[in-house]
Nucleic acid binder design. Sequence first.
DNA 1: TGAGCCCATTGATTTAGCTCAATGGATTGC
DNA 2: GCAATCCATTGAGCTAAATCAATGGGCTCA
Lengths: 230, 230
Amino acid sequence: MFVRIPTDRRPQPNTLDEFGLTSAFNRIIGLGEFTYRKGTEIFGEKEPAVYVYQVKHGAVRSYKLLSDGRRQIGAFHLVGDIFGLENGDEHRFTAEAVVETVVRLIKRESLQLVAAKDAVVSHNLLSMITRNLEHAENHMLLLGRKTAVERVAAFLLEMDFRTGADKMSLPMTRLDIADYLGLTLETVSRALSSLRKAGVLTFLDHDQREIMLNDRRRLADFDPQGPAQH
Amino acid sequence: MFVRIPTDRRPQPNTLDEFGLTSAFNRIIGLGEFTYRKGTEIFGEKEPAVYVYQVKHGAVRSYKLLSDGRRQIGAFHLVGDIFGLENGDEHRFTAEAVVETVVRLIKRESLQLVAAKDAVVSHNLLSMITRNLEHAENHMLLLGRKTAVERVAAFLLEMDFRTGADKMSLPMTRLDIADYLGLTLETVSRALSSLRKAGVLTFLDHDQREIMLNDRRRLADFDPQGPAQH
DNA sequence: TGAGCCCATTGATTTAGCTCAATGGATTGC
DNA sequence: GCAATCCATTGAGCTAAATCAATGGGCTCA
């Protein structure tokens, strides 16, 4: 089921390195890399949190379910991102590979051990949790108060920022995007079409997963900002 | 503008004491208590985070605004709750007194100083941030995927749990509740009416802010749970 | 090579919740 | 005492997004 594959070495925006945590990871006996096939579960909600994960290749979705199947994706984890880090003993989300995905993993225990001794590492862990909190806070505003087009524009800007590339290659389906934005897949599709018609983006492939942003400024105009600063 | 008032000594569920942080607060030179009149701002989004606050009496709302006035309340802070604690240097929400409110405040600086020396305190601060994160994660699910009645039921259960009293006296208006739940005030009002008609709650006063829950089990049935545990 | 599946789009229709509007009780200030 | 304000409810109608449905391209695998 698990297969070791070589480490991906491409430069990665928005990675651990910002936090200086890659070194912490490196100092700890890593348990190697594992590959998860598209759609497979990495860990489940309420399961004991034994490992912390870093995406080496691919993409991961973290989500919560309601009993009738409604799903809310809380975050997508892209190359370089760390996920599954819990303060408590249980995972609060289910994590699944969006596409074939390689993760590096280390024991939570060993990370905590290092953090207890090394103030820099524990500070970086705190920064990461804070960043997650900030993301969730902004996402509450999106989910509670933004329109469909505003949500999709915000999503594109987030992905553009995080991937840092000229053209985006979205690993997730319209359904994934919808469950991240609190919409249906049809509404996401319509919003993307209307943005394409407005000229702010172009689809580059048949699946319409490869997207080029023609005008980030104008796209940003679709995503409302906070109140004017004083 | 600010008036000192005596400390409220009633037992408080969901307070700092759970975290063992009250002692940390006590060890630090407090800057005393301040009273904010109903509707006044305690701090603004993007302002430098100088103080950390604890509600002694009253209630506080933390929110983000969009430029056109749409508001998302991220949390209500009740008696005993600490708020305004930031890892970064800026407040990420605006905080306002929901009713006449007394807060205790200490310099963020001094709390950080204590935390740096005392592993228990820093652990408790981490726990608090984690709890905020958990709340935000659950609220994303609510905002993204729950219906109006489900949201209102979840809100009532949350308030019931946090106040711990037999009857709830809600300090906030229907508009506040709506902006917390991503709804309009009319929809909140209708949802409450339908729950009253269903017999799960009773209004005790004219303003319908005093609410008695007649059947918590049945109320909980209105708020869908996660998937069945295996 | 072709059946089956996955995924995205688009159109038609429905609907949950929003908007607009009226009412009425409680409170405040003059 | 009374006008003004605030807050909650309820009704009528509207609309943004959901739902239901059809289509079509590309991929997989037998």
